[in-house]
Design a protein around this nucleic acid. Structure first.
Lengths: 353, 353
DNA sequence: CTTAAATATGAACACGTGTAAAAGGGAGGA
DNA sequence: TCCTCCCTTTTACACGTGTTCATATTTAAG
């Protein structure tokens, strides 16, 4: 009938450094130094503390430690959306780089909501993070929020760069180059492509459209963009791509066209629409339909047909953004000028185009 | 030549409540109460503070506030992996539910590394989170870490439940039911399925295998599992599924089989392998090959062919886990018994089976 | 207008740890 | 043995805000 004694390990639980100091027999400041860097105490103390910690359950209070340090050792990251493998790859690259640089990462997600984005920024500022990385929601972002972050702490924008914001560091993809590359390739191997736009959730949507138009005109072709009407501005990219092309194919249009999609998720919807109409993008024997994406979404090599696309160099964007942020942190002065790094895209040719 | 004056808003920046109290003309404790709940000060003070805050830039220090409250208002979440839409959906559901309940979420990712998982747990404990939610890495997780979390704070496991851990709350899917449902369906409409295993990254892998075997035997069929040899225990599910079926098809095997995949990402690789061999899963006109997944990955309706699967009720799992955690938090006493909630899966029949 | 009750405020202390300056201790040289 | 120097430890204060309780203020009742 008696409940069994709580198992909770055999170690005595200790809640403060003070108690720990008594239990081990060294002074509290010595412990404080030990936890920041074990080499900062004498060898004898180090051994003594190490052995003491083995017999006791203690974790330093995160808040108390960070409150008094000159530097919190935290990097804040704000991401617009979680259910998108592009952003998860970016976030993973960032977290790995930040961890390697010795920082703790606090990641917040905007869930495609401006208010949540603003609240996340507020949280990061209240935590006195050493610096912040942000992939903004886009034109809907509250620019005053970005402005406050920029003026308050080392701040680097990633992936998408709202206009009307001056002097903000940015690391992302050179969309003029990457989209141009895809456009040029499609023009070379078939009819000049139409551009299947993505919902205007951020500025990359516009940049890629403009880059497509510019390249088309440079090559002497007439640009044509579809999928811009009645855009819901939501992140349902696949169904957007599917719906637009479904309509076209049903009307007998674009059956042998080249279609450059604004990103891979739109292209996945496009592939689906093609299949529904018995079309096989990229297959020579079956008309000239070609579908191409942008980003190199991790699933591209497994799609049917395998999706040709332009790879964004996420594995560079993340680490470079972190490295710039870290150097901004170390330079306590206002950093020199504005830092902008744009990575080229790489053609990934598979089956679909 | 003179650089323009820093724009940084026109508001004076204030760093402590003390300064703010002087600037506004109320006492600091009054401000403290105001920030916790504006209704806790008189209407006159409220107005005064509100107007004062408009003319000044101030954010309360996160660490100082949380350090002294009896409750930090933080829920910690540990996720095993980011580049998987199942977990991002789960995380999003959790974050939304936690936000709605008034909690701040600190999400940490294990990046499929036991050490990182342990460090994340340490971080959460050091932050004195009110409670923690965890989708563990699996059998590789350090059980002592889970045990410590359980004994230290309200703790609910999600998605996958390591064995050998007693009395831990758990919210997830009833894999006996969900996998059984798929197995039964496949048996009903075609030849009894083989089971294409997933890398043993967590206990769900085993649970689904066992559930498949049980259902097959119940129906009087001989179970057969493929894809278990030389499993790399990594999260490259698609290429795993593709490689296994590629090998089978190349040897002329399983060309007209029913294949139940341990999850949708494995199934995506399986679909790819089928396409490479000219097979069209689910298409009546083209033999009897059927491929089915598990989870209802968001891309299923857009695949070619559309992937039939069993949906996990992520939109319930997340919120219910949060709700249990919150009630555990409010019951300062050791909660009654162990809480286990398993949600049934739902058949999502599309084209592939 | 007076008085009691209700409410808002402020002074003082608390939280758990970082850190600068003062005190301590041990080794090496005379 | 004594002194100096250097390194370690300790004392004391700081950080920014929560919280208690005595006091000041407002409100309601008579």
């Amino acid at each position: 009938m008696t409940p069994p004694p709580p198992v909770q390990g055999f170690k005595k639980r200790i809640d403060t450094m003070e108690e720990l100091a008594i239990a081990i027999g060294v002074s509290r400041p010595t412990l404080s130094r030990y936890f920041q860097d074990p080499e900062r105490v004498s060898r004898t103390s180090k051994e003594r503390i190490k052995q003491g910690l083995d017999r006791v359950e203690y974790v330093p209070n995160f808040f108390a430690t960070r409150m008094n340090r000159k530097s919190t050792g935290i990097i804040g990251v704000i991401t617009p959306y979680l259910n998108d493998l592009f952003f998860t790859k970016l976030l993973e690259a960032i977290e790995r780089a930040a961890m390697a640089a010795g920082y703790t990462v606090i990641a917040q997600c905007s869930h495609s909501d401006t208010l949540i984005e603003a609240r996340a920024a507020e949280t990061l500022m209240s935590m006195n993070v050493d610096g912040a990385l942000m992939a903004p929601l886009g034109n809907q972002s509250d620019m005053r929020v970005l402005e406050r972050l920029r003026s308050r702490l080392p701040f680097v924008l990633v992936d998408s760069r709202p206009e009307g914001l001056s002097d903000v560091d940015f690391v992302g993809t050179n969309h003029v180059q990457s989209t141009g590359l895809a456009t040029e390739y499609l023009c070379r191997v078939g009819p000049p492509p139409v551009f299947l736009a993505m919902p205007r959730v951020n500025f990359n949507a516009f940049e890629r459209e403009k880059a497509y138009i510019a390249k088309m005109e440079e090559l002497g072709h007439t640009p044509r963009i579809i999928g811009t009407e009645a855009l819901n501005e939501e992140w349902f990219f696949e169904s957007h791509g599917q719906a637009v092309l479904d309509r076209e194919f049903a009307a007998g249009r674009l059956l042998e066209a080249s279609v450059l999609c604004a990103n891979d998720r739109v292209a996945i919807g496009a592939l689906r629409a093609a299949a529904s109409h018995g079309l096989e993008p990229g297959a020579k024997r079956n008309g000239g339909l070609r579908i191409m994406g942008h980003d190199d979404y991790p699933l591209c090599p497994f799609l049917v047909p395998r999706l040709s696309t332009v790879e964004q160099d996420v594995d560079s964007i993340g680490p470079v953004a972190v490295s710039r942020l870290v150097s901004s942190i170390h330079a306590q002065k206002n950093q020199d000028g504005q830092f902008v790094k744009l990575f080229d895209g790489t053609l990934r040719l598979r089956e679909s185009a």
